[in-house]
Write a protein that binds this DNA or RNA. Structure first.
Length: 578
RNA sequence: CGGGCUGUAGCGCAGCUUGGCUAGCGCGCUUGACUGGGGGUCAAGAGGUCGCAGGUUCAAAUCCUGUCAGCCCGACCA
């Protein structure tokens, strides 16, 4: 391809709206343009990178015995009613109505396709002999993000590879899951991404039922805790913390329970400051409604409550923070002064709460806190639970060494679904004993755009992008420095023909521009191999060949150049081979 | 949905506080000349409903009200 024939609008200056490197560079290098918040057009360079990533994903999916289909973006709302996800998705699902003759049809743009695929399978698979089966597709997904952000990392329309496995047994599910897990590792390695598989919020099956694939990056939205010692990695929300403390009793050194007026101090920080103590000395008492019934959740003041863990500990279906009215009823005080002592609802506490000696807690009385609060004497617990998010100072749950906290961009998620969708959509099979069972499913997603954005975010320098050879929009960029020079262009055309016939993805910068402009653009768009053809080199009978990652070019004799380039490409690809 | 910020040429910005000449600057773009190895020089140009609507005023980019859009923080996110 000739630069003059394609569309690569590079920008010297950074658009003011872009804050994170991937967004800035993808705009400046002419990969994307914004249409509206959370919606982007992919320009030729961006699209080519996407297509390279897709090709790798496709290869690995086929390799893992998944077969490609294409489901529509237009889906009937009725299916989401049947699985209960019309409510679960809420405003995230893009719903609309169309008119056909006299009837109105309720549609939704597919946010993911569990319903559509399961419904289809339920009509065509009825025997254990037809299982297992894994289907996948790469199509646009639609989610009405309340707040799209971070450029192309979180958008309302995005490309996702989604796969669904159907099996007749747990063994089949586990096998499909493992194949996908392995395929994902191969995909991200081949794409040149450094990634971290982390334990994620688990599904109905529990255990190791869900993993997210994260790209460690400062601008990532997800929080991960990672143990450098044993390799344990988990989503912050999922990571286990603390252990049950068997000795729940009042310490000997307990001081007296004392009521202290704390006017205006209702937040943890305010109370700690007011009483000149640290937040870790406080008991945070959160009033929740679990399946509609109030419950007080005790967390150490400097810790963060984890609603998923609380819900599981209570065995509740729904959990939400109580409203002011309920709080007033249960505690007898406005929001901010709840405490475990004398509260009129059940208590549940995190492991780290009863070990606080002479704690500070709300007095269940307006503008008042208690000091010298101790378990056993002042409030009663029979057991404790893991109810909070991991904190960076927590020890690794596996090896007790230090955890580090990092941000990550989620690029993939594998999930053991179980029978949630097959049950509600009646995707049943008959086993060898003529018994009917719901199929056991798994689902597996990859954000294709995030592969590209993640690379842009993590692989760049001050001059621009640095593509890995495998997903680069082009493998080689030829820069004839003076397109008006006859010998330069003769050589360029000859090499162009030879490289093309050797199957090289080639971009030729044939613009009549200053060398500085071309070389700076070359660095910006980050094509991995650059070939400079200029007067200086021609006099010596050489071209200059440089990897984007190298600082100095190699001078290569004209008749050896093509071979040299082919070797380099193979070498670079070899580094990412699996 | 709460909080903050910003809308002036394709991009980056100044002007607004204190209303007043024909709305400016840099980059980019067009034409020509010179130039030709890291965003070159000179010359001549094109390009604007100052986000939109209403109001105040003799007069609005500037003040007021409303509205729309974008960005950031938070809440939310199968």
């Amino acid at each position: 391809m000739r630069w003059s024939k394609t569309f690569i609008p590079t920008m010297k200056e950074t658009p003011a709206d872009a804050e994170i490197p991937s967004h800035q560079l993808m705009l400046r290098a002419g990969l994307i343009r914004q249409v509206m918040a959370g919606v982007y057009t992919y320009l030729p360079l961006g699209l080519r990178a996407i297509q390279k990533a897709q090709a790798i994903v496709r290869e690995e999916m086929e390799n893992a015995d998944a077969v490609e289909i294409a489901m529509p973006s237009l889906t009937p709302q009725e299916l989401y009613h049947r699985t209960g996800r019309i409510a679960a998705f809420g405003n995230v699902l893009m719903k609309f109505e169309i008119t056909r003759k006299d009837s109105r049809v309720s549609l939704a743009l597919g946010p993911t396709h569990e319903e559509v695929v399961t419904d289809m399978i339920s009509r065509h698979i009825s025997s254990y002999r037809q299982l297992p089966l894994t289907l996948y597709q790469m199509t646009s997904k639609f989610r009405n993000e309340e707040r799209p952000r971070f450029g192309v990392l979180r958008t309302s329309e995005f490309l996702m590879k989604d796969a669904y496995s159907f099996g007749s047994s747990l063994e089949q599910l586990n096998e499909a899951y493992q194949k996908m897990y392995d395929a994902y590792c191969r995909i991200f390695t081949r794409c040149g991404l450094s990634y971290l598989p982390v334990e994620a919020e688990s599904g109905p099956i529990g255990g190791d039922a869900s993993h997210e694939f994260m790209i460690p990056a400062d601008n990532g939205e997800d929080h991960i805790v990672h143990c450098k010692n044993c390799g344990y990695a988990a989503n912050l929300e999922r990571a286990e913390t603390g252990r049950e403390n068997p000795e729940i009793q009042c310490p000997d050194l307990a001081s007296e329970l004392q009521e202290i007026p704390t006017p205006g101090a209702s937040s943890i920080d305010a109370v700690a400051k007011f009483l000149k103590t640290s937040p870790s000395q406080l008991i945070k008492t959160l009033i929740y409604q679990a399946d509609g019934k109030p419950v007080a959740v005790l967390i150490r003041g400097d810790h963060e409550a984890n609603e998923g863990k609380i819900r599981r500990a209570l065995g509740a279906m729904t959990l939400q923070l109580a409203d002011e009215k309920t709080i007033l009823e249960v505690t007898g005080a406005p929001v901010g002064f709840a405490g475990p002592v004398g509260i009129k609802c059940p208590l549940i506490a995190d492991h780290d709460v009863p070990v606080i000696q002479n704690a500070v807690a709300g007095a269940n009385k307006a503008e008042t806190h208690l000091t010298g609060v101790n378990v056993d004497r002042d409030y009663v617990l029979t057991t404790t639970h893991d109810l909070r998010n991991a904190a960076p100072e927590d020890p690794c749950p596996k090896c007790r060494q230090h955890l580090v906290s990092v941000h990550g961009i989620e690029v993939g998620h594998v999930f053991k679904l179980g029978t949630k969708y097959s049950t509600s959509l009646e995707a049943m099979f008959v086993d060898e004993h003529e018994q009917r069972h719901p199929m056991i499913m798994g689902c597996y997603g990859i954000g294709i755009n995030r592969i590209i954005a993640g690379l842009a975010e993590t692989c760049h320098d001050e001059k621009g992008l640095i593509w890995p050879m495998t997903v680069a929009p082009y493998e080689v960029l030829m820069c004839p420095l003076n397109v008006g020079d006859e010998p330069t262009m003769q050589l360029t055309c000859r090499m162009e023909a030879e490289l093309k016939s050797a199957g090289v993805d080639l971009l030729v910068d044939d613009r009549d521009a200053r060398p500085g402009v071309k070389l700076n653009d070359a660095d910006l768009i980050g094509i991995p191999l650059r070939v400079v053809i200029g007067g200086k080199g021609l006099k010596e009978g050489v071209v200059e060949i440089k990897l984007r990652t190298e600082s100095e070019p190699t001078k290569v004799k004209l008749d050896e150049a093509v071979g040299f380039i082919l070797d380099k490409i193979a070498q670079e690809k070899g580094k990412l081979a699996v």
